[in-house]
Simulated scan of single mutants.
Amino acid sequence: NVQSNNQCILVSLQTPQSVCSQSCGPGSRNIPEEGRPFCCFICTICLETETSNQTASQDYQECPAHEYPNSERNHCLPKVVTFLSFEDSLGVTLACIALCFSVVTAAVLWVFVKHRDTPVVKANNHALSYMLLLSLLLASSAPYSSLAVPTQLCLLQRITFGVVFTVAVSTVLAKTITVILALKAMKPGRTMRWLLVSGASNSVVAICSLIQVIICGIWLGTSPPFIDIDTHSEPRHLIIECNKGSVTAFYCILGYLGSLAMGTFSLASLAKNLPDFSEAKFLTFSMLVFCSVWVTFLPVYHSTKGKAMVAMEIFSILTSSLGLLGCSFAPKCYIILIKPDKNALKGLRDKIDFRGK
């Protein structure tokens, strides 16, 4: 009798179980079934940002922004701080591409400086060619700062991007204007010749770049870029990024750069049909590549987040820079290095005489 009484006491101390449904374990909660007794319910798994560490719980617990639920959804774990760096395979790939582009750009600049007294280099204002190559060389170094640890210097990254590409595009615009002035100078009249000889087209670079600098100054004075932490793009990582600050100012910079690029492309398209000026055709193709890259970039940029957004930005910078470099300077480097006989006054005279016939 004593033994049976002890068993009865142990049984009475145990929690009675529902005859309808088993209690839901941690990581889920009870949802009552409509039209069924109160002891009948369905177990639902917690969402990606929620946990439940009690049995038969009817409420979720939201994880803080800097934490994420474990696989069992019963407690939160700290997120890992990350950013696109040289340690990532994608970052290493972009850095290698940027390094190769920098080497090629520096090599082209060296070729132009070494052969600065030849007709091909002198044609269409060699000073503008040097300026364009230097701006492309600066553009190729932009990915390195984007792959480093984000700091307060991120505002300089954004401004450098806008100003450097404005200098590059305005240089192409100045070269296009030089082509048009050179054709007009062949006709009677002193005005066009004076504009060509005085280098008035060079002032286009200064004016266009100054406008972009003013926009960047307004951006810095109102709402400059700053270091931010993205807690939503990746569920298990905190991504350190450079926040744009004022979105309006950022798109003003892109809008001005895009308007300048489209205007340069339109003018170069009109000039490419001028007789005996193949330089205009190269400028047209370079601006076509540049505009195509950035028109494609904008919708893709808005559809990506986190590391992919930074990688897309770097890729667009390198691709557009490569388009300007290849279309503008590859034909000239071919003549200088492979066909040096055409890079002489005699070769140019023979070419003109042949076209005259």
Rank of each mutant, 00 (worst) to 15 (best):
S12Q: 12
F250M: 11
L13P: 01
F265Q: 12
L348H: 07
V300I: 13
S198H: 06
S321E: 08
V293N: 00
N273P: 03
Q212W: 05
M312H: 02
R355D: 07
S21Y: 02
F101A: 15
C242I: 04
K305P: 03
M262N: 11
D350G: 01
R236H: 14
N125P: 03
C208M: 10
A56S: 07
L195N: 09
C216G: 04
L195T: 07
S129Q: 10
K184S: 13
R349I: 15
S28D: 05
A261M: 04
T248C: 10
D117G: 01
N343Y: 03
T319V: 06
T231I: 13
L181C: 04
Q61M: 13
R349C: 14
F112P: 08
A182G: 13
I9S: 11
E279N: 00
C327S: 09
L136P: 02
K79L: 11
D228M: 12
E48P: 05
D350T: 10
S292T: 14
N243R: 09
I215G: 00
C154R: 00
T82N: 08
F285K: 07
L153A: 10
R29D: 11
S269G: 06
I335C: 13
L132M: 13
L138H: 00
T151H: 09
K114P: 03
V113Y: 09
V289T: 04
L238I: 03
G323Y: 05
E33N: 15
V179E: 04
V2S: 06
N53Y: 06
S278D: 15
R158F: 14
N5K: 07
V247Q: 04
C43K: 00
T166F: 06
G347M: 06
V81A: 14
Q152P: 02
V293I: 15
L345P: 02
T248N: 03
N53M: 09
I227T: 09
V163N: 10
N202W: 01
L298Q: 05
Y251R: 00
